[in-house]
């Protein structure tokens, strides 16, 4: 083998070792930016119990059933029109247009705030939610967060304060937190949100089946419609503060405004 060929191989090997070794440690935070790691160490050393349950994911079905038990006494329906604020991660790409169709049908005004790759931590650390609430003055809030933190280790200790901060920011405004559409078993994010959010404000999406887009994580547009339909069907019987959510004829609508934030923002 020639010398420069070995040199190149050593370069690629050294880079791989550095990236793999770094993934075994907590990455540093510089000027508020948390560096990401490759996850190689985590993927290689994952316990088989977790992996087996990840592989057991079932694909597709039109009939999406809500696994949350029905409440014995449904709350009275609020039939007035509301300004709705919908915040969350990239899952809003699918859920947002469908909720906009519901808003048009039921006389609500919808504002979507998509923050890509965001987590409860990112929202909890920032004042964005508070600012949007002050700016838009919503009468109802939907939250879709948790998909980017399905596999965070020791999540209850790391994220509880941020989930609590989000719920505190929402304050007395009625809300529904739509849980992440698990494509693998989570390490406790659903349990954490359910324990912080008052009863009737958390819609558990884990256990539902979805058609996934090419990335294997996001539900397809049609499946996201079914997902939001399930939330709308769940609300009258189970939500702490059900609002009018009659099923619209058209599949997608246009929100009054969409605000977009990039992963790099704080």
């Amino acid at each position: 083998m020639k010398r420069h060929y070995i040199e190149l191989w050593l370069l690629l090997l050294a880079a791989f070792v550095v990236v793999a070794a770094a993934s075994a440690f907590e990455m540093p935070e510089v000027c508020g930016h948390q560096f990401r790691h490759s996850g190689i160490a985590e993927a290689i050393t994952a316990s088989r119990d977790t992996v087996e349950s990840q592989l057991a994911e079932v694909i597709v079905a039109d009939s999406i059933e809500c696994p949350v038990p029905a409440r014995t006494f449904p709350m009275p329906m609020d039939t007035t029109s509301h300004t709705i604020l919908f915040i969350g991660d990239s899952m809003l790409e699918g859920l947002g247009p469908r909720l906009a169709a519901y808003a048009e049908k039921n006389g609500h005004t919808l504002y979507n705030v998509v923050w890509y790759s965001s987590t409860s931590e990112v929202w909890g650390r920032s004042d964005k939610l508070k600012n949007y609430i002050e700016k838009i003055r919503p009468g109802f809030i939907f939250v879709s967060l948790g998909a980017n933190e399905l596999f965070v280790r020791d999540i209850a200790a790391k994220r509880r304060q941020y989930v609590e901060k989000i719920v505190a920011d929402i304050d007395t405004i009625p809300f529904v937190w739509i849980g992440p559409p698990n494509w693998k078993d989570d390490t406790g994010i659903n349990e954490l949100i359910a324990s912080v959010a008052p009863k009737g404000t958390f819609f558990l999406s884990n256990g539902m089946t979805f058609q996934r887009s090419k990335d294997g994580a996001h539900p397809t547009r049609d499946s996201a419609c079914d997902w939001l339909d399930s939330v709308a069907r769940w609300m009258p019987q189970n939500a702490l503060h059900p609002i009018r959510m009659e099923r619209p004829d058209k599949k997608h609508g246009r929100p009054a405004r969409i605000f977009v934030h990039q992963p790099s923002e704080k």
Binding site: V19, R36, D215
Partner: peptide, 19 residues
């Protein structure tokens, strides 16, 4: 070269979507 390669890998990690 190694440094540049590592910087590019980290950039990929920072900007990648979930999958």
């Amino acid at each position: 070269k190694l440094l540049l390669f590592l910087v590019v890998v980290q950039l990929v990690l920072e900007l990648r979507s979930e999958d």
